[in-house]
C-alpha cells in the first residue's frame, strides 16, 4: 500500500484552477521530488495535502485512510508533517520551545497537571526536553537551544523547521523548498541531512525544490507540475530529457530557429 495516494485532486480558486486532477503516489521510504515553474501549484498541492486549504474535489489517502477535508492538526496526527516555503517558525520563542510545541500531541497530561505541576507534569516535561534535545543534536542546534528562533542565521532557521516537523513523528515529510536561499555548501550539507533523516526515521519524503542539483541527485522519482497539471513523472534521467518538461521550463522550441 502506498504511503500517500491522491486521486483526481483538484483545487479551484474562483476562476483559477490551481491544481487539476492530480494523481500522485508515494511508496514507503521513497524520496520524491516535485518540480515545476513558479505558480505551477506546488505549494497549493502541499496545502491540500496538509489540510490548510480544502480540495474542490478528489481524494487524498494516507496509508489507505482518506484524509481530505480533515483539519490540519488531525492530518498532522495522522502522520504528515511539513515545512514552509516562507519560513514559519515561532519566531519569538526559543529553539527548544519550537521543537517542544511540535511534540505537544504526545503530551497526555490534562489541565489539572498544567495548573498544579504535579508528578505527571514533571515526568512528561523531562521526557519532552530529553527528546527535543536529542532531535536538536542531530541538527547541531543543541548548543543554540535557548536562542530565539528569529536570531538564528537563515540556514539554521530552515534546519530548525525540519527539526520541528520531525518532532511531530511523521511518516511522510513534506519539504517546501528547503534549499531556497542557501549557498552550494549549505545545499550539499542539507542534501546529506535529508538522506540521513530519511534513513534514521524511516520516512517518506516529498520535496519541492528549484535547485536541480539537489533534486536530481537525491530524488528517486520526480513529478513535474505545470499550470496545476502533472505533465511528467519518472526517474531523474527521464525527466531531464522529457520534451514537455523542457518546454514548460524554457518555452516551446520554435521551428527552424
Amino acid at each position: 500500500m502506498p504511503v500517500l495516494k491522491t486521486e483526481g485532486l483538484t483545487k479551484v480558486f474562483g476562476g483559477l484552477t490551481a491544481v487539476l486532477k492530480c494523481n500522485i503516489e508515494i511508496n514507503r521510504g521513497e524520496l520524491i521530488g516535485l518540480i515545476g515553474p513558479n505558480g505551477a501549484g506546488k505549494t497549493t498541492l502541499f496545502n491540500l495535502l496538509t489540510g490548510i486549504t480544502l480540495p474542490t474535489s478528489g481524494t487524498v489517502e494516507l496509508e489507505g485512510k482518506k484524509i481530505q477535508g480533515l483539519r490540519p492538526h488531525v492530518i498532522c496526527k495522522n502522520g504528515i508533517a511539513r515545512t514552509f516555503q516562507n519560513i514559519r517558525l515561532f519566531k519569538d520563542l526559543t529553539v527548544l520551545d519550537n521543537v517542544k510545541i511540535a511534540m505537544n500531541q504526545h503530551v497526555k497530561y490534562g489541565l489539572h497537571s498544567a495548573f498544579f505541576h504535579n508528578r505527571a507534569y514533571r515526568r512528561t516535561e523531562a521526557e519532552i526536553i530529553e527528546k527535543a534535545g536529542d532531535l536538536l543534536n542531530i541538527f547541531n542546534l543543541y548548543e543554540k537551544r535557548d536562542e530565539l528562533a528569529k536570531n538564528l542565521p537563515y540556514g539554521e532557521q530552515r534546519q530548525l523547521e525540519i527539526a520541528r516537523a520531525l518532532a511531530t513523528d511523521p511518516i511522510l515529510l513534506l519539504l517546501d523548498e528547503p534549499a531556497a536561499g542557501m549557498n552550494p555548501v549549505e545545499t550539499a550539507e542539507l542534501t546529506e541531512l535529508i538522506t540521513k533523516i530519511r534513513r534514521d526515521y524511516d520516512l517518506s519524503i516529498l520535496l519541492i525544490e528549484h535547485d536541480m542539483s539537489l533534486v536530481m541527485s537525491i530524488c528517486e522519482r520526480i513529478y513535474v507540475l505545470d499550470y496545476g497539471v502533472v505533465i511528467a513523472e519518472g526517474i531523474p534521467e527521464e525527466i531531464k530529457s522529457n520534451k514537455r518538461v523542457i518546454e514548460a521550463y524554457l518555452g516551446e522550441e520554435v521551428e527552424n530557429a
Binding site: P72, R88, T168
Partner: peptide, 24 residues
C-alpha cells in the same frame, strides 16, 4: 509553562504553523 500553555503561545506566534504541527 505547560504543554497547553505552549500550544496557546504557538497560536499567537503563527496560527497556521501551529495547526500544521498538530495543535488543536
Amino acid at each position: 509553562n505547560s504543554a497547553h500553555g505552549r500550544a496557546s503561545i504557538s497560536i499567537r506566534e503563527d496560527e497556521i504553523a501551529a495547526e500544521s504541527m498538530g495543535i488543536h
